[in-house]
Nucleic acid binder design. Structure first.
Lengths: 277, 277
DNA sequence: ACCCCTATTGCATCTGGCGCATCAATATGC
DNA sequence: GCATATTGATGCGCCAGATGCAATAGGGGT
């Protein structure tokens, strides 16, 4: 997640936090120094010292018996102050309503981070067991409906800049092959106000998404539904409409007056950050 | 927040995040470089450079127009991915303390799954014979205190959708007969901050429960105590209070900022800068 | 006792964080 | 219009502090 461009000790230190939040580390109830050092290819001494600083600052905590480090209270406290809590507060009930009343499939609220999509909230229908926890996870923006919705205002040059260095290979059979194809599909989404994706991210998976705007008119988030093709495909246009009206409602709660955004070259912090390895 | 003991560049860098998470900074929609530098008594050059590293890693974000930095979504992602882990890790000692010091009765930590309650952790007092292993068990949400606590934020329509198709028949003598009754009792629980249940799930069984919230502000789990009526009834309000304060403590460890109002759906442009200087 | 695995610490090396000064860009004043 | 103030970024020399190696210490397991 933290991609190195110019090595700095700070960046190296931050990668420790990423490692501690990895699936592996979480599943193991935290990682010890040596394991962490091995995973990152760094010397144990440095990992040990860096973790001590993090621990003193509360960014990580150590299990007394297993000696394993975990993400600490301070990160959670900061997360509570992370960008726009209002989006979460207003979004949660809308997600619930969508999944329970309208669609009966899994709904996500996500934001753009670089060329990837970060899932903030997930709501699954009651009868489905939560297989993977999607919240906090990153997926590519170019072959997902959320990504398409988040990029719905962007022009060709924006996309070229944003996806410079991103490989378009992976994903489902219908994934866009390059920025040009992506832009064409963005244009299609722009016309209807929502994005439809058919087996672009994963074979057999279809999805619909719509952009959420704040009071400035810019896209700040996306609402999306995704499900197996056999279950959702027939009502996907309807689902798109439902998602769109829900997204518009959320936008209104964020102060959007319904006007189109003026040309805002690129998103908030889109400039930097690349794809992870 | 980050207390300095032995200065290190990492610690200095982390204090930038703290500053950005301060009430002042959040209220102003983020802070610029010079302001941040002044606040921390550090040179602008270093603040600028450090923030770039943070920004590249996604730990902070920059507003395009105001040039102000805010806590970034990456921090949110870290917290989201470690949230489950932390719920269990931070919950266990609190359960133990509750049963040993405060209540002397069986305590559970549970989450909502559809219209049912899934118990994750159980702590029983030593003198009580382990009757049933509750961890992993599913019980209905409508006639249990945990369920009531987990649904404490829901509105009538939410409940109607959630319990559509659920039969309310079974349980104890005082179980709610329909969604309407359930909602009334949810409202009562909402007022006090904890839920009391008197022979709703099972004859002769009473219980109290309180909601646990995470850094997103939503209810993610519930803490509850249950025992035979003859043993707990007299001190049930006290038990409710104890459960509530324990739940609040757990919420804090999950990054919940109890001081912050969690449903601020009204103001359109609250996040933006209002105060001049 | 042994070995193996893990975490911490001492120490010499030298990277990279630091402050100062400068520069560019954008307001604000007259 | 020019002058001034403010804010953020950068070039550069210096030394704090990050790094890596090796040694040390603890903890099981056999």
């Amino acid at each position: 997640m933290v991609t190195d461009e110019h090595p700095s000790s700070l960046r190296r230190a931050l990668s420790l936090l990423d490692a501690l939040a990895s699936d592996d580390a979480v599943a193991h109830g935290g990682w010890g120094v040596s394991r962490l050092a091995a995973h990152l290819g760094r010397d144990q001494s440095q990992v040990s010292r860096t973790l001590r600083v993090f621990a003193d600052a509360g960014f990580v905590e150590r299990d007394r018996e297993s000696m394993a480090y975990r993400i600490g209270w301070h990160v959670f406290a900061l997360a509570a102050r992370a960008a726009d809590q209002r989006l979460l507060a207003a979004g949660a009930p809308i997600l619930r309503r969508l999944v329970e009343k309208d669609l009966g499939e899994r709904i996500h609220l996500s934001v753009l981070q670089g060329s990837e999509v970060l899932t903030l909230l997930t709501q699954a229908p009651p009868h489905i067991i939560q297989t993977v926890a999607w919240a906090g996870r990153l997926v590519p923006a170019h072959n997902t409906s959320s990504g398409r919705a988040l990029l719905i205002d962007r022009e060709r040059e924006d996309l070229q800049r944003l996806f410079a260095g991103v490989v378009f290979g992976a994903g489902g059979p219908n994934a866009p092959r390059d920025v040009e194809e992506l832009y064409e599909r963005v244009l299609i989404a722009r016309r209807s106000g929502y994005a439809i994706v058919d087996e672009e991210f994963e074979p057999g998976l279809v999805a619909a998404a719509a952009p959420v705007r704040d009071f400035r008119g810019g896209v700040v988030a996306a609402l999306n539904v995704s499900a197996p093709k056999f279950r959702l495909w027939g009502r996907l246009p309807l689902a798109g409409q439902a998602i769109k009206s829900a997204a518009d409602e959320l936008s209104e709660r964020l102060g959007w007056d319904g006007t189109r955004p003026r040309n805002l070259a690129a998103g908030p912090s889109a400039a930097r950050s690349e794809v992870p390895a």
